[in-house]
């Protein structure tokens, strides 16, 4: 791999990380802006469910779902977590 590319992959460089956050947030902003222009069809229109047609439903749902799953996982880990030698100890 050529050195310029490698330089941009060094994610331990705080300056670079800051730039990536800025670029990333701009991309997310563009997605949200474009989403306003999309006409979303309801998947369960016949049941009167149209939450999936509200603007920004998919970005918000994607974020919330992932966030929730991590919280669920972390909560469960309180009970389920063991040292990785747990089964080998016998």
């Amino acid at each position: 791999m050529s050195d310029p590319i490698r330089k941009y992959l060094n994610l331990n460089d705080p300056k670079l990380i800051k730039w990536y956050w800025i670029v990333g947030l701009i991309v997310l902003g563009i997605i949200m802006a474009v989403d306003l222009a999309v006409h979303h069809h309801a998947h369960f229109a016949k049941d009167g469910i149209d939450i999936d047609t509200t603007p920004e439903f998919y970005p918000l749902y994607g974020f919330a779902a992932s966030f929730f799953l991590v919280i669920v996982a972390k909560t469960l880990s309180i009970a389920l977590k063991r040292k990785d030698s747990y089964y080998a100890d016998d």
Partner: peptide, 13 residues
């Protein structure tokens, strides 16, 4: 757009 919204914001989280 639906997929991109779903995935990129999952990435954000």
């Amino acid at each position: 757009m639906q997929m991109l919204g779903l995935l990129l914001f999952s990435g954000l989280s």
